[in-house]
Computed example of a mutant assay.
Amino acid sequence: MTVQTVHFSRGIPPREAIPSTAIAGLTSAVLTAEPDRVFQYAPIGRHTGDQELREQLGKFHSVDPDRVFVTNGSLQALDLLAAHLLRDASEPQVLVEAPTYDRAVQIFRRHGARVSGVPLRHDGLDLDVLRERLRTEVPAFLYVIPDFQNPSGVTTGEDKRRELVRLSAEYGFTILEDIPYRELRFSGTAPTPLGDLAASADGARVLTIGSLSKVLSPGLRVGYVIGPPGTPHALAVLAESIYLSPAPLLQVVAARALADGLVRQNLERIRQLFQPRHDAAVEAVRQTFGDIHLCIPDGGYYVSVHLPIRTDEEAFLAAARNEGLALTRGSAFYPVDSAPPPGTAFLRLPFQALDPEEFAEGVRRLAAAAEQAV
């Protein structure tokens, strides 16, 4: 009998989290009203994105729209920022959380960075380790995902955020805060954004990377950077040399979705949809394994664990495949100088697309795989 696979692999929105019918309606209206504009090249010459979209993103984040640069997804934002920040760096060192988003590490390394991990705790970076690193080498930038981190689910606490901003000012490094999950909070109080803290800290520098992929639609490919004056134009010069101009249709549709309130309406739908899945996922892990969560997230997509295993990761993953599980290799989320604790496998367990019964079945299979791997 074929066993249906439980997918603990990709963190993508389920279909029911994307307001496809409403987006299609907005697209039809845009195509009727101004087809000539959206099927032409966007303006060139330091073009920072559709004006209406930047204004709407400025309202959404309570920032001046002149500080917003729109990209084709957040990975492009990361790529452009890495090129911008590493181009003139005398020491191309980049610090990241360990574990962290694996594609970000790949991008930084492609731009010549030496990427080093700082251990992640239940409430953010291990600041003792970070301070020790800073005494010997100041990075070009520190990359963090402070809200419901991918892959761990960790949210950086208020006190640690303030200390990170203080360290940025003291040592002169830039913080890249990546916030794709920030709006997906199901409970608790949101800590202050790093960008807001930097605004009142003399000498601190924070660049914020956002995306509409998790709150509206990944297919629209809308990411953005919020930076200090001058940064959007510098990124625009880089972007034009790579792809000339963005896709006007997608940016105009995204702008209308924000202006019409669709994004905020969809966020409320997503929270109602995901919270029961989150609660059931946390409980399933606790009942099966005990308190081995890296944290209990208050939102986002992920629960993560350091699962004790009696063998190496390769043998465990083979046993998991035999149990009908699709997993992402946990060690891939660690930079080359970092690793999960000895005797454990790091597992990112996305819950956003699984009903409670399917997630619980996946956890049961994980337990069986851990017992079988020798």
Results as ranks from 00 to 15, higher is better:
84 H>N: 12
84 H>T: 01
85 L>T: 00
86 L>H: 04
86 L>S: 05
86 L>P: 00
87 R>Y: 13
87 R>G: 14
87 R>A: 15
88 D>K: 11
88 D>P: 00
89 A>H: 01
89 A>T: 00
90 S>Y: 03
90 S>E: 15
91 E>T: 13
92 P>S: 04
93 Q>W: 11
93 Q>R: 15
94 V>L: 09
94 V>H: 03
96 V>I: 11
98 A>W: 01
99 P>S: 12
99 P>V: 06
100 T>N: 04
100 T>E: 03
100 T>R: 03
101 Y>T: 15
102 D>N: 10
103 R>M: 11
103 R>E: 09
106 Q>N: 13
106 Q>V: 14
107 I>R: 06
107 I>H: 05
108 F>M: 14
109 R>V: 02
110 R>T: 07
112 G>Q: 05
114 R>C: 06
116 S>A: 12
117 G>P: 02
118 V>S: 11
119 P>C: 12
119 P>Q: 12
120 L>T: 07
121 R>T: 13
121 R>K: 14
121 R>H: 06
121 R>Y: 01
122 H>C: 13
122 H>N: 13
122 H>R: 15
123 D>Q: 14
123 D>H: 12
123 D>R: 14
123 D>E: 15
124 G>A: 11
126 D>P: 01
126 D>L: 08
126 D>G: 07
127 L>D: 01
127 L>W: 04
127 L>H: 03
129 V>T: 11
130 L>E: 04
130 L>R: 04
131 R>M: 07
133 R>Q: 08
134 L>E: 09
135 R>W: 03
136 T>D: 09
137 E>R: 13
138 V>Y: 02
138 V>E: 00
138 V>K: 01
139 P>A: 06
141 F>R: 06
144 V>H: 08
145 I>D: 13
146 P>K: 07
149 Q>P: 02
150 N>S: 13
150 N>P: 01
152 S>H: 03
152 S>E: 03
152 S>A: 14
153 G>Y: 10
154 V>C: 09
154 V>F: 02
154 V>S: 10
155 T>P: 07
157 G>E: 09
157 G>H: 11
158 E>R: 14
158 E>K: 12
160 K>V: 03
160 K>P: 02
160 K>R: 15
160 K>N: 12
161 R>Q: 09
163 E>K: 10
164 L>T: 00
164 L>K: 00
164 L>G: 00
165 V>A: 04
165 V>F: 04
166 R>T: 11
166 R>W: 05
166 R>L: 06
170 E>V: 01
170 E>Q: 10
171 Y>H: 15
171 Y>D: 04
171 Y>M: 05
172 G>P: 00
172 G>Q: 00
173 F>L: 02
174 T>P: 01
176 L>K: 08
176 L>T: 03
177 E>S: 15
177 E>I: 11
179 I>A: 08
180 P>S: 13
180 P>N: 08
180 P>E: 08
180 P>Y: 08
181 Y>C: 10
183 E>F: 14
184 L>Q: 03
184 L>T: 01
185 R>S: 08
185 R>I: 09
186 F>Y: 10
186 F>T: 02
186 F>H: 08
187 S>P: 00
187 S>T: 13
187 S>M: 12
188 G>Q: 10
189 T>C: 05
190 A>F: 09
